[in-house]
Design a binder for these strands. Structure first.
Lengths: 206, 206
DNA sequence: CAGAAAAGTGCGTGGCACGCAATATTACGT
DNA sequence: ACGTAATATTGCGTGCCACGCACTTTTCTG
């Protein structure tokens, strides 16, 4: 299965996605042509469309990929760990380095985050990002079902958990992107999921 | 404000959305041209694009519209009602008639539901539907904030609640669309939201 | 090393989203 | 009631995009 062939395909897909993101952040969504992305990776425009059926899908791919890994991470948590503790750890492993802030041009983190925010404001992008979350949600529901002895076919429960966790993660990301005194994902994420696990009681003002 | 002009615009928008849905359900997404939708409403193709920037957006508009009304419904619940009870009632008022099963060709409900399921399987649609939910989510978060004395600008809580409720509603809809012994939304929705309010504990098998 | 399988490419096509300018319709003050 | 301003509708033109198809190139397998 995993010969040179599969590996190269994976790399090309990642390279295309990354190029699409980089170019979009720096130049704006509709100033980037499919042709540009293909050229940046050294591949024909037609090949781009063999990997992704749209610019938006290419950009959303990184999010899809990371979201998928949450299900995988959940499966690797000890089986005797409580569900919600395991969910918190699993999401933390994939969403803490910030939404890929660490790499990129070394200086100017704020520039990069701002660029991301602008990019994510693009209507065409929003739908595709949410769709990526939804696709990964199916994997997560399956993993939750395994851990809780429920059935993804018949039961609502695993889907409900997966959907809620995904929603909480997305809410945390959006909060992260707009928080002016910046807040670390390491705090945001566990807090959000803990509130979920507690039934989202109305907070008492203090 | 609400002169003849506004009213007619609203009607045209609704008519276009409805025509887009009807044609898509009966003929399939890519067998329907923008031209067809425009013609069905008696308007020029160019005008279609004054109302919606894509076929998908036109289809998703009904969902957007209904989702928006949940926030409105929440505001009309008595202020002394507990938050989650109010949320259950608010969602029930807008999502119980089935996802618009009641109207349409009188007979053959299953045909219609199947057609809807096929339509919602379209990738281009999924993103747009989720985006509609996300837009309405902002309204809902504002309404939740009012009711709970929190601040949409600074606090994560109202967004967390709105996102979770939206996720639960969407999960319920998907479950409704695939449940083979059919389950009524009237049961699914309160059940899903009650589980949310209880912190989504792992169900005990019986 | 040869044939099969699969990825990459070039070309052509139909459709879409939208800017712009012209026209038709509605709103409103006098 | 009328004329004018505001707004909606329309037609046209343009650039881009997604994809089917056929062909070439690369990789896998026995």
């Amino acid at each position: 299965m995993s010969g040179l062939r599969e590996r190269k395909k994976t790399e090309t897909r990642a390279a295309l996605s990354w190029a699409a993101i980089r170019l979009t952040v720096t130049q704006g969504f509709d100033n980037v042509l499919v042709e540009d992305i293909a050229q940046a990776v050294g591949v024909s425009p037609r090949t781009f469309n063999n990997y992704f059926s749209s610019k938006a899908e290419a950009i959303a791919f990184r999010h899809l990929d990371r979201s998928r890994q949450v299900a995988e991470a959940l499966r690797q948590r000890p089986v005797d760990e409580p569900l919600w503790a395991a969910l918190i750890e699993a999401t933390l492993t994939r969403f803490t380095p910030g939404p890929e802030v660490a790499q990129s041009p070394p200086g100017s983190h704020t520039e990069w985050v701002d660029g991301l925010a602008v990019m994510l404001a693009e209507p065409a992008l929003q739908g595709e990002m949410l769709r990526a979350s939804a696709i990964a949600e199916a994997d997560l529901a399956a993993a939750v079902a395994e851990r809780t002895g429920t059935d993804p076919e018949r039961d609502l429960y695993p889907h409900l958990v997966a959907a809620s966790v995904t929603a909480a993660v997305n809410a945390a990301i959006r909060h992260f992107l707009r928080a002016d005194p910046p807040v670390a994902m390491e705090r945001l994420l566990p807090d959000a999921l803990a509130q979920l696990a507690a039934g989202l009681p109305v907070p008492t003002p203090r």
